[in-house]
Nucleic acid binder design. Structure first.
Length: 910
RNA sequence: GGGCCUGUAGCUCAGUGGUAGAGCGUCGGCUUUGCAAGCCGAAGGUCCCGGGUUCGAGUCCCGGCAGGUCCA
């Protein structure tokens, strides 16, 4: 077997293969005395204050040098892809340059946009976010330089020999690094279902690049060959810039202007150079994941510099915060610049995580400037190089302002909650439990340090457990993944069938067709061609019928299995070879088509009114109405909604042509950008592009009207916030829209009729009616009060002496329980020894018992009285000693119940 | 996609199935040269909506609407 690691360059130059004495990995070097692999932690950074390159590069300068070098070596320079991976549904963010080409190019289905190519791809990885600012080599967003070659059986571009040679030449000839300082560590890379051997390229303790030879598909721990052999390289351009400058911190190297500003705003002292240098070197040797790791680092730095751990912490914490903020600002600029909408789900949530972490850091630094203001500074740095961010500046700043306000609201709401909680706990002299701490974080977004801060002000002790976030994770029950719906028919049963011809595309207006039955499988029929549109892209399937001579069957559902279309029929009398006559339910299909084209038009209108950060999040077309979910960072206002509706109908009335056609994927992406995928990711080499002329273009497999005018009318029915950052717009088109409007009209007419008003005046009439109703309620209340007073006088004369107790047990006609309570309460206030039991009856009987203070002391218990008396009524009752209530369905027994009450009362006070 | 929390007066919120409350704000009166403040009093409620359980629901159960929050 050929050793892929033995590349031509190593032989030519005389590299030796060795094993690292520290980590045991195999590496290649020219340096005769080298015993370690050259990567941390086996080697310490040796470039600080001593860069290995012939000159210093800024990040932009390094990127330029990188792209130019590979450009000269036959690579086509391609534009960066967005940091939101819109073309994929398996990841949210672009995590590497190779992500740009997955899965269509890497699977061999679609040719690469150029071959070989080179790109500088902003990539976001949030896994190590806690290390950012501290480790020196971690960033939330970094520029990954990648030169890629896609080798197929037909075309060989280059493979391992050339890859290493190119990398080596770039490092030595272009940057001037000495050959014997570069070590190539053998490794094996695996990710995203692919795998391959790789080299890690290290210089003076810093891993600068990874060269992967992707050639396997990995599945369940087994490897199968990949049809393509792909050169996947990743050059950490920030690290290259850093090593070339040889400064103590990579963040100083990359973010200098912003870091300096932040330091000034926060009044952060710069560290002594040697402390920063030692800190960087030692931080480079470890992963900082827990507080314990950080303490270990501080101790090591203290040992080398002679500065105490406490002093170090005081010096380093603010500096690390500044670095992290600078990093996060750049990340957020790209996230929002590439139109992420902040949300509590998906990539929107990831953006919020970074944003809130930034706000927390600002709070810790006591840097009281609006985040939007800091972002404006950051954008000033970025926009000369990234004009696309300049275009979105307004959106970026608005969203950040809004999110900062939301965060502050959440904190102040939460703080109040903690204060109240702390008040109660202090009274009982208890600490705040860690369960409560978790709840505060989980349900109210309050980080534990803020809880601690607020609670300790109120004098309550809070212990934040070391493993707080682990506890949080544990408190979440495991997410139950809903298994994807199983294929209706197993693959074996579909073998050797050729793809079904989709004649609904050729003529979306055709209603009947002839076809040949190729196979029947259980309930399903496979034809050679069909007019039945299968469920897909949010459009439900067609229904209709299939007929052979006199035998007819209903088509109830149509599904796609790869290229084959399955018709579910009831019953299934068909046999392979038969010729069938098919008919689709045209009323249904034409309504679905109108709704589908209407969806595209409405989405276009929403993007124009709300901004092009609006993205289709999901859609369910229907015959009666359609739901369109779109991303937007706040509620759509009624005015905006009317504008969207208006604009959409204008496009309908303009009767624009709707063009559909198949296009090569690369060509379509070049022409329309990733906005093509508004309607979701579409598989395949060729895309079906649907364009409502001059309005909206999407990759879409649905059936569409040929002109917008056929839609007739678009009526928005309602909007709903289905998630933070996602608005659902429900609408109807054509006849369904008319039906909806007519139904509304009927409702309004009915309401108007009830109020003896006209539809135009209904709102005013309803207001008037409501106001009057309220006024009458008040009047009724006061009249009842008067009536109660009169009854009190009447009742006073009915006091009975029963044994030792004084009591009134009477029926009061036409009173409510509320009134009974008021009357009884007035009487018992007057006479503290009195027990009052009042009853009322209509369909049911109810009674109220109240006792004065002295009567209660003497043993009266109205709860018990009510319970006893209510039994007579066939119901139940209860209450407190001073007030009891009860009732039951046997209204005729009210007098008996009152008698029972009196008896009970007598017994109690005997 | 899943979990959790919340919805009561203009605002912030209490409210063990049994008479809907507090603080702030508003209005009126008193006190004060005036302001700030203080004292007394009043107005202000579809307890988010709809069902259910119960003699009785703001409170318990189910469904919906709205908001918040954490995770994948």
């Amino acid at each position: 077997m050929k050793d892929i690691y033995k590349v031509a360059l190593f032989k030519q130059e005389g590299f030796e293969r060795r094993q690292c004495q520290s980590c045991g990995r195999t590496f290649w070097t020219l340096e005769s005395g080298r015993k370690t692999c050259g990567d941390t932690p086996c080697d310490e950074y040796a470039f600080i204050g001593n860069p290995p390159t012939k000159r210093k590069y800024s990040l932009a300068g390094m990127e330029r040098a990188f792209l130019k070098f590979f450009g000269r070596r036959g690579h086509e320079v391609i534009k960066r892809y967005p940091v939101v991976a819109r073309w994929r549904d398996d990841i949210f963010l672009t995590i590497a340059s190779i992500a740009d080409f997955q899965p269509w190019v890497t699977s061999g289905l679609v040719p690469p946009p150029a071959n070989p190519l080179v790109v500088s791809q902003p990539s976001i990885r949030l896994k190590d976010i806690d290390n950012v600012g501290r480790s020196g080599r971690h960033f939330t967003l970094f520029f990954m330089g990648g030169h890629h070659a896609f080798n197929s059986r037909r075309e060989r571009i280059y493979w391992n020999d050339e890859t290493v040679a190119l990398c080596h030449e770039f490092l030595t000839k272009e940057l001037g690094i000495r050959s014997d300082e570069i070590s190539y560590i053998q490794d094996f890379w695996e990710g995203g279902g692919n795998a391959g051997e790789d080299f890690e390229v290290n210089v003076r303790g810093l891993e600068l690049a990874t060269l992967v030879f992707m050639q396997y598909v990995s599945k369940d721990g087994k490897y199968a060959p990949l049809p393509l052999k792909i050169v996947d390289t990743g050059y950490g351009l920030e690290r290259f810039a850093w090593i070339s400058q040889g400064v103590a911190s990579s963040y100083e190297a990359i973010f200098k202007p912003v870091v300096e500003q932040l330091r000034k705003f926060a009044g952060v002292r710069m560290l002594p150079a040697d402390v920063l240098e030692q800190n960087s070197k030692l931080a480079g040797l470890m992963d900082i994941e827990t507080g314990r790791d950080l303490l270990m680092l501080r101790k090591k730095v203290a040992a080398r510099t002679g500065v105490s751990v406490e002093e170090l912490d005081k010096l380093l914490v603010p500096v690390e915060a500044v670095y992290a903020i600078a990093d996060h600002l750049r990340c957020l600029a790209f996230m929002f610049g590439d139109r992420i909408t902040p949300s509590n789900v998906k990539e929107g949530y990831l953006a919020r995580v970074v944003l809130r972490r930034t706000l927390r850091l600002l709070r810790e630094l006591e840097l009281r400037k609006p985040l939007a203001e800091l972002m404006a500074l950051e954008l000033k740095q970025l926009t000369p190089k990234f004009p696309e961010l300049k275009e979105r500046e307004d959106y970026i700043l608005e969203v950040i302002g809004l999110e900062e306000r939301r965060y502050r609201d959440a904190i102040s709401r939460g703080s109040k909650l903690v204060e109240r909680l702390a008040g109660g706990l202090r009274a009982e002299d208890k600490p705040l439990s860690s369960e409560k701490l978790i709840e505060l974080y989980d349900s109210h977004g309050l980080p534990p340090d803020i809880v601690k801060e607020v609670a300790s002000k109120a004098g309550v002790v809070v212990e934040v457990p070391d493993d707080f976030y682990i506890k949080v994770a544990k408190s979440h029950s495991q997410a139950r993944h809903v298994p994807a719906a199983a294929a209706p028919v197993s693959k074996e049963k579909l073998s050797r069938l050729s793809p079904t011809k989709t004649i609904y595309y050729k003529d979306p207006y055709a209603r009947e067709f002839k076809a040949k039955v190729l196979r029947t499988i259980d309930d399903y029929v496979v034809l050679d061609q069909t007019l039945f549109y299968p469920e897909g892209g949010g459009q439900p399937s067609d229904v209709g019928s299939l007929e052979v001579r006199k035998t007819k069957a209903e088509v109830v559902d149509v599904k796609k299995a790869g290229d084959i279309i399955l018709h579910r029929v009831k019953p299934n009398p068909f046999k392979a070879g038969q010729r069938v006559h098919g008919k689709i339910d045209w009323a249904r299909r034409s309504s679905l088509m109108r709704h589908h084209t209407g969806t595209h038009i409405l989405l276009g209108a929403a993007r124009r009114v709300l901004g092009d950060h609006v993205w289709q999040h999901g859609v369910q077309k229907g015959v009666e109405r359609t739901r369109l979910d779109i991303s937007h960072f706040k509620r759509i206002e009624p005015k905006e909604l009317r504008e969207i509706e208006h604009l959409a109908n204008e496009i309908v009335m303009e009767n624009r042509p709707v063009n559909t056609g198949w296009m090569d994927r690369n060509q379509a992406e070049r022409k329309y950008g990733f906005d093509l995928y508004q309607g979701g990711i579409v598989p395949g080499k060729k895309l079906r592009v649907v364009e409502a002329e001059g309005w909206n273009t999407q990759a879409c497999a649905g059936t569409h009207c040929s002109r917008t005018g056929e839609i007739g009318f678009i009526k928005i029915i309602r909007t709903e916030r289905i998630q933070d950052g996602v608005e659902r717009v429900e609408f109807a088109v054509g006849e369904a829209a008319l039906k909806f409007v007519q139904a509304q009209e009927r409702q309004l007419a009915k309401a108007a009729e009830i109020m003896r008003s006209t539809p135009e005046r209904t709102a005013a009439a309803a207001q008037q009616l409501f106001d009057e109703w309220k006024a009458l309620q008040k009047e009724l209340d006061s009249l009842r009060g008067r009536l109660a007073e009169l009854r009190i006088t009447e009742l006073r004369s009915k006091i009975k002496q029963v044994g030792k107790a004084r009591a009134i047990c009477e029926e009061v006609e036409g009173a409510s329980t509320d009134q009974l309570i008021k009357i009884a309460s007035a009487l018992t206030r007057e006479d503290k020894r009195l027990v009052v039991v009042l009853g009322v009856r209509d369909a049911m009987a109810k009674l109220v018992a109240m006792a004065g203070e002295e009567a209660v002391r003497a043993g009266a218990d109205c709860g018990a009285i009510a319970a006893e008396a209510a039994k007579v009524l066939g119901g139940g009752g209860g209450g407190k000693p001073e007030l009891g209530q009860g009732g039951g369905p046997k209204a005729d027994y009210l007098i008996a119940a009152l008698r029972k009450a009196l008896e009970t009362c007598e017994k109690q006070q005997a």
